[in-house]
Design a protein around this nucleic acid. Structure first.
Lengths: 227, 227
DNA sequence: TCAACTTGTCACAATCTCGTCACTATTGAT
DNA sequence: ATCAATAGTGACGAGATTGTGACAAGTTGA
């Protein structure tokens, strides 16, 4: 059974979320303020945290920072909730390393989808980001490549990028979406940033790099060519 | 079943529109404020959005801008509603890329007509529509060919061309129409461009190329010969 | 403080796309 | 069968897109 911590001060939303999660047979714990949330996280080590940014006593950003400092909690995936569609908050959140975000009001259905998507790539109780594909395993900025029997260290950005591509294996991801999801860019910056990072990834990946395919006019796509 | 999102703060109008749409067997979801509308759009990905410009919390323009930033929603056709015949609003809306507009008060009958017209039109105009034919699926410059269990990368132009042909499966498309729709040509350029692209398409399609038939003296036609 | 690392940007190189053209092949009416 | 119209094909070059190496600014950790 997976446990999810809900840190949200509005009682209605807390209950709504909690109800929905439990109906999907997650176990939930919740708190209406930041400080309690933090100590609940430390004592229970949940599998995922849904964290409102506007919290009494200690706000979401503070809580998040604290979580990331403690080795027991630093790898727990966090979905941030922002009351306003404040671009700044979202970007700040993503930069701090939140795994996903949702702006209120949101549909419970969407939250459930995100929770499941996030948990799918998180299999350990310590909650590090892991993807197990046929021949590789992504975990904590490291790519374990079984065929080559070795570990490849990735930078955080490279990791994020590869993660998204692998999660959507077989589906071409367009440049703008990637820029938005990995970097939080809004506008179509006519940027070589994405290309450069893809290049760096490919360099590190060696022969596995053939899995990252260019889809001209669209973006990039991961395809497992090992099988 | 096609889903339509109604973003309109006046309850009477919302219900009226919703009633009319449902009578025509569309499925509807609705919201009285912009923010909720936006998140509904993101979680439900409707086929069309009817968007009032004067909305509480987040106005129609804002909602529209956000919709166009997200790849999941950026191609959804939008009909804008303006309270008064505010010329400026309409122009601004159309410039932003709204697909149609209507000024209040409007007749439900007219709205229905526009909705249907737009749904028919937009299906062909956006490059990202997915078409599932019996053995084929077109998405993001890629052709998924189920019988051959493989993906074929197409260039943007090839994609556009094939899309139009497949959408009008069984109906011969004449050269001028194709040149106009894919290339935006006005005059009958006595050009080999179309032929060349058809040839390139056929090359990529392999045995599937038999589906693209030459209709001498007219143009080309797609016909599913696999079934 | 300094060295090592990360990351975004730029300039230039490599590659791909696509319209055009010259030429060939096919078609269908006479 | 002949011929003119139509369609198919291969090649080329301009322009667009992507790949690459270098660099500088910013971060991190010792």
């Amino acid at each position: 059974m997976q446990t999810i911590l809900i840190a949200e001060d509005e009682k209605d939303i807390r209950q709504l979320v909690s109800f929905n999660l439990e109906r999907e047979s997650f176990s939930t714990i919740s708190s209406g303020d930041g400080k309690t949330a933090l100590s609940l996280a430390r004592s229970n080590i949940p599998d995922l945290i849904i964290l409102d940014l506007m919290l009494p006593v200690m706000d979401g950003f503070e809580v998040f920072k604290e979580l990331r400092l403690d080795s027991r909690t630093k790898d727990i995936p966090v979905i941030m909730l922002t009351a306003k569609a404040q671009l700044d908050d979202i970007i700040a959140g993503l930069e701090m390393g939140a795994d996903d975000y949702l702006t209120k009001p949101f549909s419970p259905k969407e939250l459930m989808l995100r929770v499941k998507a996030l948990l799918k790539r998180v299999k350990t109780s310590t909650g590090s980001t892991i993807i197990e594909s046929s021949q590789i395993r992504l975990d904590k900025n490291t790519l374990h490549c079984f065929i080559r029997e070795e570990k490849i260290d990735l930078t955080p950005t490279e990791f994020k990028l590869l993660l998204i591509l692998i999660e959507r294996e077989g589906v071409p991801q367009n440049r703008n979406d990637l820029l938005r999801e990995v970097w939080g860019y809004r506008e179509t910056a006519n940027s070589r940033t994405l290309d450069t990072h893809v290049k760096r990834l490919r360099e590190k990946l060696g022969e596995l790099s053939r899995c990252i395919e260019t889809v001209r006019g669209v973006g990039y796509q991961y395809r497992n060519i090992i099988s």
